[in-house]
Amino acid sequence: MLKARIIPCLDVDKGRVVKGVNFVDLVDAGDPVEQAKVYDLAGADELCFLDITASSEERDTIFDVVSQTAEQCFMPLTVGGGVRSLGDIRKLLLAGADKVTINTAAIHNPDFVQEAALKFGSQCIVVAIDAKSKDAKFEVFTHGGRNETGIEAIEWAKRMTDFGAGEILVTSMDRDGTKSGFNIELTKAISDAVAVPVIASGGVGTLEHMVEGIRDANASAVLAASIFHFGVYSIEEVKTYMDAAGVAVRRAESA
C-alpha cells in the first residue's frame, strides 16, 4: 500500500540553511547539501527546500544548491520560494528538482499554474496555499500571513487543481510556528475537496500532531521544519510513532 510521506523542509537563504538542525557531526551545518544527505540517510520520504532569499540577484544560489543536492540524493526534491516564471521552473527542473511549489505567483496570475502544468506536467506543480481563519472561513494570505487576498481557501484549492496542480501544500498561518498542531479543519476541508494529494504543514510540535495530519486531516504527507531542525525528533522517531499509531509509513531499508 501507499505510505504516508514525511517531508522535512529546509529554509535556505542565499544558498545557506538558516533554520537547520545542529547535527553534531556536521562540519558545516549551514550547508544544504550536507543537511540533505543526513535526511536522505535518515529515511526522509522527500525533501523540500524553501528559498527565502529576498533579493532576486542572490536567488541564483538556489540553483546551485539544488544541483549539488541532486548529485548525491536520489530522492524526490521539491523547491519553493520565488517561483514566478516558466523559466524559473525550467531552471529548477534542469538543476534536478522534481517538483516546484508556486504560491504568490499563482495569486497574481492563476493562468501561470495552468501554463506550468501544461508545459512541465501536473506531477511537478505543487500549489502552496497559506491560509488563515477569517469570519468563520479560511482565507488565502501571502507574505507570511501579512497580506490578505480576499480569496476563499477551499475554492482556491479546487480552482488550482482544475488548472492542473498535481498536489496542494496547505499551510495554516494561524498555526505556523505555534507547535499546537496542524489546522485539521482547514486541511481536511481542502483534502476532501480535491482529488490530488494534500501536504499538511504548519504547527507541528509533537509526534501525535504528525499522526493527526494523516489520520484526521486526510493529508497524504506531512511537512515539518522546526521539530526536525531543532533536533526535537528524528525521522525515525516520527516514523516509529506513526507506525505504532496505525499510520502506514515506509521504514528505512536495511540495505
Partner: peptide, 8 residues
Amino acid sequence: KIPHMGWN
C-alpha cells in the same frame, strides 16, 4: 488520490 504519488 490521483495521481498515485509517493512510496508504495
